[in-house]
Design a protein around this nucleic acid. Structure first.
Ligand code: MN
Ligand code: MN
Ligand code: ZN
Ligand code: ZN
Lengths: 157, 157
DNA sequence: GCATAACTGAAAACGGTTGTCAACAAGGGG
DNA sequence: CCCCTTGTTGACAACCGTTTTCAGTTATGC
């Protein structure tokens, strides 16, 4: 069980924060699941690693990681937000069927951002890009095979 | 006071929904402010137009408009979500100084979306693009140019 | 006008998130 | 290695945006 320290853990220390068991557990879960997890899910999985972990600490850890840019908040249309490991040029692809979240590398956005910057005079420092659609699996099964669809009905009667 | 019916109002009717005073008030506010407003703000401004308006109805109206694609939910890093008129190829530019929200037309995203679609096998149906930065005014003053026009002090004003 | 179902507003419930605070432990200094 | 300092934690409760409930109202077709 001698996992090498996640890069994020080193970044935490470098920023002057303490490397606690709780934070390590959250980081470990985030790293294992390379997609979006809600604070509640992180809490549940985190307790498997470090039993005394508290939900409140998960929230606080996520806020800290978000501040440091190590994690990204994902805005699905569901009630709770999700968090996923952040990376340069990594954005999120959300399946409207199974609600699974994956990352995809994206080039060509810088160009667009530069264009908007030039046109509007804004100095743009951050961007959020989320694409929504049906994953291959959900396309195969013929649509949302999911218990909690977000928008009521796709049209089509 | 014979305002022409907002296009959104006609869309509502076309989709088989009733054109109520409450809904008209919300639409009127949304149209007047061409940027993001929280449900609470919509409620307050809406009551100036139609006094008996209820906050719950604002939520319900926004959900309906969102379903019909007439409004778009904006995910700022603040607690409350905002809603803004939706349009094709219109995305949002958020100032981190004054929190003002403006729309910008965007070309060149379809290409990017098509590329991701081809690479991942997802059938992409929606996209959310939000850029964050400093507006020209806030760059000039080195901070909030204007004391938070869109996000007034929450409590006890 | 009338009937009827869609819609509304008030109040209460709900649930994700945040604040509080005493106990704890990470990490530097001795 | 132990101690100290202070950042951090976890339980509990408050908070607050959002949703549900439900009886009364209203838009709309006839
Ligand atoms: Mn959001
Ligand atoms: Mn677009
Ligand atoms: Zn899927
Ligand atoms: Zn600004």
């Amino acid at each position: 069980m001698d996992n090498p320290l996640p890069a994020a853990a080193r970044a935490l220390r470098a920023a002057g924060h303490r490397l606690t068991r709780a934070r390590l557990a959250v980081l470990q879960v985030l790293e294992a699941e390379h997609a979006g997890l809600s604070p509640q899910e992180l809490y549940e999985r985190g307790r498997a690693i470090y039993a005394p972990l508290g939900l409140v600490t998960v929230y606080r850890t996520l806020a800290l990681l978000d501040e440091l840019g190590l994690v990204r908040r994902v805005h699905s249309d569901q009630e709770r937000h999700a968090y996923a490991c952040a990376g340069a040029d990594r954005h999120h692809l959300l399946c409207s069927g199974c609600h699974r979240l994956v990352e995809f590398p994206c080039q060509g956005l810088d160009e667009l951002v530069a264009s908007v910057q030039a046109r509007t005079g804004y100095r743009i420092t951050e961007h959020l890009l989320e694409l929504t659609g049906l994953c291959p699996a959900c396309q195969a099964t013929g649509g949302p095979a999911d218990p909690t669809p977000h928008h009521p009905a796709p049209r089509g009667a």
